[in-house]
């Protein structure tokens, strides 16, 4: 069987796409999202900046964001990647499964932050270790089901494999006591999940509603 001619690897695409899915972010977060070394990520960002696809905004730390041209170029290259991998059917199926899990994940983040007591929903003050451990156990259960979806996605398009690693890291840290990694920081399970959601929408060219 002959393989279709492999397209030239698009080294800049993961960086360009990271800004599309994660928004305006620092070099450190581009590195975390893509798995690239920070200096490699920065060098790609600079090249993309020369092409007018991304722009650097002052701040502490400075953040990089897509230009209008970058957004258009990214969408076009992501669509091309999907078609050349003939992955639309598999990604669509995985997206449908993801959308079944999505409300449950949001329920869990909310249950971590808020807690009904006597019919009144208030802030979870994390003084009830038994309740918190129940929430964590359900995160772990959901993560097991999410892993299957991530595996299907990675089989369809290898770049999706990065989400599995990031979700596992967030949950591992939360289970080890760094509970801000559930819903409260920029590497949290919730935010990685939200980036995956955005990525699926962008990849399939869908609207959120």
């Amino acid at each position: 069987m002959t393989q279709p001619e492999a397209p030239a690897p698009d080294a800049a695409l993961p960086v360009l796409h990271a800004l599309r899915c994660a928004g305006a972010v620092s070099v450190a977060r581009v590195a975390a999202v893509t798995g690239l070394d920070p200096s490699d990520a920065e060098s790609e960002l600079i090249d993309l900046g020369i092409d007018g696809l991304v722009t650097r905004l002052p701040g502490d730390p400075p953040v990089w964001s897509l230009t209008g041209a970058g957004r258009a170029a990214g969408a076009e290259r992501i669509a091309r990647e999907l078609e050349s991998a003939r992955a639309r059917g598999r990604v669509t199926a995985a997206y449908e499964r993801f959308m079944v899990l999505n409300p449950e994940l949001l329920d869990l983040c909310t249950a971590w932050q808020l807690r009904p007591v006597d019919g009144v929903t208030g802030v979870n003050d994390h003084t009830d270790a038994e309740y918190d451990s129940r929430v964590l156990a359900r995160f772990a259960d959901l993560d097991g089901r999410a892993a299957a979806v991530c595996a299907e996605l990675a089989a369809a398009l290898p770049r999706f494999g990065r989400y599995r690693a990031r979700l596992a890291e967030a949950l591992g840290r939360a289970a080890a006591g760094e509970t801000a990694y559930l819903a409260d920081n920029t590497a949290s399970y919730h935010l990685v999940w939200a980036e995956l959601h955005e990525d699926l929408l962008v990849t399939l060219g869908r609207e959120r509603w």
Partner: peptide, 29 residues
């Protein structure tokens, strides 16, 4: 509604309003 692309805006804002979504939406979390 909000997506991860709005995160820097959420961080900069003092308050947040979305037209859609419920108390367990991305924006609420």
């Amino acid at each position: 509604e909000t997506s991860p692309g709005d995160l820097h805006g959420l961080a900069a804002a003092a308050g947040i309003v979305t037209a859609r979504g419920g108390p367990a939406s991305h924006a609420a979390v």
